[in-house]
Nucleic acid binder design. Structure first.
Lengths: 155, 155
DNA sequence: TTGAATGCAAATAATTTGCACGGAT
DNA sequence: ATCCGTGCAAATTATTTGCATTCAA
């Protein structure tokens, strides 16, 4: 019994439950958008999501895409990232995944994710964060590092 | 004489010279835009620059502002920063100034610059940069850290 | 059933572009 | 004098919004 209880407790909350927790409906558009992020992965623009939905024969209006990207942002499921190309991009914040940086090629625009962070890096950023909180009086929830340079092909 | 020579050599290159070096004309619009950044400082949007110019009675069309922000970007005088508010911002890269981070309030949108970086921080970032260069084959020219949280008034 | 979500098209907002004219070299 | 740079207005691109209809709860 106890084991059963623990297992249930540790099961990941379904998207349906997450929506319900926020008093939002688990509509098919929303499920489809989440599916795109789960399948296609990183940093998609609204248009990217829209195109992927079309490719999957799911008819979701572009306005609905925008509205739901914003909702998922406010629910803390997505975060916004920006690569200076004139449009916002979104990516899923996975519970298990660590924060990652982005490496942007200033010539061709290619973006590479850098997932692996060393223990040392992690500690350093926590330290920097604490220091900034004290110095500026902010409460810091998250951070994001962008590196700019030339990718192997462009250098 | 020697001292005089050294002084001349160390004098900052005038904007006029910088433009000439890039085979660009040192027009009054361009000078006025640089003046705004020198006077008003950090992270201005195209519209911000345009408004500051109007306030200074300099008539420069918004298209010219956009064209020159892009030029100054390519010349390495400005860099683009983005705070997720739907518009690009630009700020001057001063030779003397170190890289600085930005602290963004996710509630009111306020942006605070964090200029001071400790020796330790500087070294760490160089280290991280070297590591990424090796791991990804990029040549990294610059980086930018954004911190997100709540400002003193919003928390 | 019933209000929240959606699709569509129209409205905004940000940025870019075409072209005739003006100004820096 | 010669082009580069500019202003203006029109064109594009990204995103938001109004409203009648649809659908999850």
């Amino acid at each position: 019994m106890i084991i059963f209880f623990i297992e249930v407790k540790d099961l990941p909350e379904s998207w349906k439950d997450v929506f319900h927790r926020f008093n939002k409906k688990a509509t098919s558009s929303r499920r489809a958008i989440l599916e795109v992020f789960e399948e296609k992965g990183q940093h998609l623009s609204a248009e990217d999501v829209y195109e992927h939905l079309r490719a999957k024969k799911k008819k979701v209006g572009i306005a609905t895409v925008y509205r739901n990207l914003d909702l998922l942002l406010r629910m803390g499921i997505l975060r916004k990232v920006n690569f200076g190309d004139g449009r916002e991009h979104y990516e899923m914040i996975r519970r298990a995944a660590r924060f990652h940086h982005h490496l942007i090629c200033t010539r061709c625009g290619q973006v590479v994710d850098c997932e692996e962070m060393t223990q040392e890096e992690e500690e350093f950023l926590q330290h920097l964060r604490k220091e900034l909180e004290q110095r500026q009086g902010f409460v810091i929830h998250s951070y994001h590092i962008y590196f700019y340079g030339l990718c192997p092909r462009c250098r």
